[in-house]
Simulated scan of single mutants.
Amino acid sequence: MSISRHASATPATWREVPVPEQHLPLPWPVVARSQELAAGERFPPHVHAWNQLVFATEGVLQVTVAHARHVISPQQALWVPTGTVHHTGALGPAAFRNLYLADDAALGMPSQCVVLEVSPLLRELIVELGQVRPKDDAAYYAQLCALVTAQLRRQPQHTRHLPWPQDARLQRWCQALYDQPADARGVDAWARQLGASSRTLARQFERETGMNLRAWRTRLRLLRAIEWLAQGRSPTLIAHELGYASASAFNYMFRVETGMSPLQWRKSRAA
């Protein structure tokens, strides 16, 4: 199967769905909201007057915040602080299970976006919070809120994301590589195509993303690999689609970046 056909699994044209109506203030310190998203559905850019934990119990989400893209698979969530412009889309059918959290100094959460690992306990607390009606058992609901916020602070954090440049020319370049991650052309070839000197292009790319092309391409391939592994594709096929000469070369990159092989990563998520 060709690379172009596999790349189409990521929606070329997103279908926007309405942002849920916002009610202020939040009635509880933590409010759960559930929604089923079809592949390719995305909320348009928006902000909340509260913090948000972007999470899905099933499916892979892509969250764009400022000039960074985050690919969030199950067992991960993205912390989005109050007032942060963002938009979230589903790369495949997704069970969207996010949390809204009122501002509180006691939360102890970062003031910037960060990816959290979601423990099985936190996952079940989120699901339970979404199933309980506060008016039926206010005391129990309050206990769930306290447990959720306590667990949030205990989740491992990492800032792995794909920086996205602001310059329109660089954006076209990055989008082309995102759509076709097996494209191995270097800066010189892209400079000729984009009408710039290779030195200027490389400097501007590093200035706007904080990474050189080699490191950025590795991060891109890692996030696409996570996305595709979560969709059930085989590591051998993913290695081909990402442009690796062999499955062992892809496995080596994945192990260096995550500490486990692609199959171990998938098994850990399935468990």
Score class of each variant (00 low, 15 high):
residue 129 L to Q: 12
residue 246 S to K: 10
residue 32 A to V: 06
residue 16 E to P: 00
residue 87 H to S: 07
residue 108 G to K: 10
residue 148 V to I: 15
residue 186 G to M: 08
residue 5 R to W: 10
residue 148 V to S: 07
residue 246 S to R: 14
residue 132 V to R: 15
residue 40 G to I: 01
residue 250 F to E: 00
residue 256 V to I: 08
residue 172 R to G: 04
residue 61 L to Q: 07
residue 189 A to Q: 15
residue 233 R to L: 12
residue 82 T to W: 02
residue 203 R to A: 14
residue 235 P to E: 02
residue 59 G to A: 06
residue 2 S to C: 08
residue 162 L to E: 05
residue 180 Q to F: 07
residue 108 G to N: 11
residue 15 R to I: 02
residue 44 P to A: 04
residue 248 S to H: 11
residue 206 E to Q: 15
residue 31 V to M: 09
residue 73 S to K: 06
residue 120 P to T: 09
residue 189 A to N: 13
residue 259 G to R: 10
residue 126 I to P: 04
residue 245 A to Y: 02
residue 217 R to D: 06
residue 119 S to Y: 12
residue 6 H to R: 12
residue 244 Y to F: 15
residue 214 R to H: 13
residue 187 V to A: 15
residue 16 E to W: 02
residue 128 E to Q: 14
residue 66 A to Q: 12
residue 35 Q to N: 04
residue 137 D to K: 07
residue 230 A to M: 09
residue 224 R to D: 00
residue 131 Q to N: 12
residue 21 E to P: 01
residue 81 P to C: 06
residue 8 S to F: 07
residue 38 A to H: 08
residue 156 P to Q: 07
residue 244 Y to I: 01
residue 259 G to Q: 09
residue 72 I to R: 01
residue 125 L to W: 09
residue 157 Q to W: 05
residue 35 Q to R: 15
residue 229 L to M: 09
residue 6 H to E: 10
residue 148 V to F: 04
residue 176 A to H: 14
residue 180 Q to W: 06
residue 105 A to S: 12
residue 69 R to L: 04
residue 96 F to P: 01
residue 195 G to N: 06
residue 159 T to Y: 14
residue 235 P to L: 05
residue 153 R to H: 13
residue 174 C to E: 02
residue 165 P to L: 01
residue 245 A to W: 00
residue 222 L to S: 00
residue 61 L to P: 03
residue 152 L to W: 08
residue 74 P to M: 04
residue 270 A to P: 00
residue 27 P to A: 10
residue 13 T to R: 15
residue 60 V to W: 02
residue 141 Y to E: 13
residue 196 A to C: 11
residue 42 R to G: 01
residue 168 A to F: 09
residue 88 T to N: 08
residue 60 V to L: 07
residue 188 D to Y: 09
residue 146 A to W: 02
residue 258 T to L: 15
residue 193 Q to F: 09
residue 150 A to S: 12
residue 177 L to A: 06
residue 142 A to K: 10
residue 270 A to R: 14
residue 29 P to S: 13
residue 226 I to M: 14
residue 101 L to T: 09
residue 254 F to V: 00
residue 228 W to S: 03
residue 12 A to T: 04
residue 220 L to N: 00
residue 236 T to I: 04
residue 105 A to N: 09
residue 76 Q to D: 11
residue 266 R to W: 04
residue 93 P to H: 11
residue 181 P to V: 03
residue 55 F to D: 06
residue 194 L to C: 07
residue 256 V to T: 05
residue 267 K to Y: 04
residue 114 V to R: 13
residue 102 A to P: 02
residue 213 L to Y: 10
residue 15 R to T: 12
residue 119 S to W: 08
residue 33 R to E: 08
residue 201 L to D: 05
residue 32 A to L: 07
residue 252 Y to L: 12
residue 258 T to E: 01
residue 81 P to V: 02
residue 164 W to D: 06
residue 71 V to E: 06
residue 179 D to M: 01
residue 80 V to C: 04
residue 4 S to E: 13
residue 145 C to G: 10
residue 248 S to C: 03
residue 174 C to Q: 09
residue 15 R to Q: 12
residue 63 V to H: 13
residue 122 L to I: 08
residue 211 M to R: 02
residue 245 A to L: 06
residue 168 A to C: 05
residue 38 A to V: 01
residue 38 A to M: 08
residue 181 P to A: 10
residue 268 S to M: 11
residue 197 S to H: 14
residue 149 T to M: 14
residue 218 T to Y: 02
residue 115 V to T: 07
residue 191 A to P: 04
residue 166 Q to T: 08
residue 141 Y to M: 10
residue 253 M to H: 11
residue 195 G to P: 05
residue 43 F to Q: 10
residue 85 V to Q: 13
residue 17 V to N: 03
